[in-house]
Amino acid sequence: MSDFNHEFLEIADIVPAFVPVDMQTGTNNGIWIAMKNVTRLVCVLFKAAGTVGDNPVITLQQATGNAGAGAKALPFTRARTKIGPIASTPQWSIATQSAANTYTPTSAASQAMIAVEVQATDLDLTNGYAFVQLSIPDTGTNAQLGAAFYIAYGLRYPQNITPSSLT
């Protein structure tokens, strides 16, 4: 079945990880997202300009339950970024790294969108890991507004109302 015959929200789900906050006020933990009904998840940070040196650290974890049971690192090798004035930064750049569960763009002083995509098969499925969380530790001593969201897609069974990505 082709996804071209479906509306986007029949084959995908958009879920807030955390609402806009001042990211310098402690760890900003996203909610846990279930990967059991989807094949891919894009974790996106959308942020305002901050202060040089207060770079956000994108952190991904995996767990066996939606409350974070058995949480451990979820390594990834690529991140996509749009760093600069959002209205005039049309293309994504690709950053590659050795496998790690964190990525630190040098974007503190700029507006930015940073996205990391994972596949369900990247999780430790053998040991029951089926949930993903994006978090951003405290960014430093100066204010920096940000919000994060997930785009879960590759829905195994397209339908008018997508199943919850939370359970």
Rank of each mutant, 00 (worst) to 15 (best):
38 V>P: 04
15 V>F: 05
148 A>R: 01
93 S>Y: 06
164 S>A: 11
153 Y>V: 03
162 T>C: 10
1 M>L: 13
47 K>V: 09
73 A>Y: 01
146 G>Y: 00
29 N>R: 14
30 G>L: 02
117 E>Q: 06
2 S>D: 12
27 T>V: 14
21 V>Y: 10
135 S>L: 11
88 S>W: 10
25 T>R: 12
164 S>Q: 07
59 T>M: 01
43 C>S: 14
30 G>T: 06
88 S>D: 08
164 S>R: 05
143 A>N: 13
109 A>T: 08
28 N>E: 01
82 K>Y: 06
44 V>F: 12
36 K>H: 08
140 G>I: 02
149 F>M: 11
157 Y>L: 12
99 A>F: 02
30 G>C: 04
96 T>N: 06
52 V>Y: 10
112 A>Y: 01
112 A>D: 07
101 N>A: 13
87 A>R: 04
146 G>P: 01
126 T>V: 11
42 V>T: 14
70 G>R: 06
62 Q>E: 10
43 C>N: 15
54 D>E: 07
81 T>Q: 11
149 F>T: 04
32 W>I: 03
15 V>G: 11
102 T>K: 09
45 L>K: 01
112 A>W: 00
119 Q>T: 14
139 T>L: 04
96 T>Y: 00
119 Q>I: 03
31 I>A: 14
157 Y>P: 05
89 T>G: 05
115 A>D: 03
147 A>P: 06
26 G>F: 09
148 A>F: 09
51 T>G: 03
44 V>E: 13
97 Q>V: 00
142 N>L: 03
162 T>S: 13
63 A>R: 03
149 F>R: 00
152 A>C: 11
58 I>E: 02
36 K>A: 12
15 V>P: 02
82 K>C: 07
42 V>C: 12
139 T>G: 02
116 V>A: 01
131 F>H: 12
21 V>K: 15
123 L>R: 06
5 N>D: 13
1 M>N: 15
155 L>I: 10
15 V>L: 14
60 L>E: 04
126 T>A: 15
92 W>G: 10
86 I>F: 13
167 T>H: 09
148 A>G: 09
161 I>T: 15
76 F>I: 00
141 T>F: 09
145 L>T: 15
87 A>K: 08
133 Q>H: 04
65 G>L: 02
38 V>H: 09
9 L>T: 12
138 D>W: 05
63 A>W: 05
166 L>V: 05
99 A>Y: 01
55 N>P: 06
129 Y>L: 05
128 G>D: 09
116 V>W: 02
80 R>P: 07
77 T>K: 00
22 D>Y: 12
87 A>V: 09
44 V>N: 13
34 A>H: 07
84 G>K: 03
27 T>N: 15
72 K>N: 08
75 P>C: 08
160 N>H: 13
7 E>C: 05
55 N>Y: 14
34 A>T: 12
13 D>P: 03
44 V>A: 09
115 A>E: 08
159 Q>E: 08
162 T>F: 13
132 V>P: 06
57 V>Q: 12
88 S>L: 03
154 G>W: 06
76 F>A: 00
93 S>R: 03
111 Q>N: 04
116 V>Q: 02
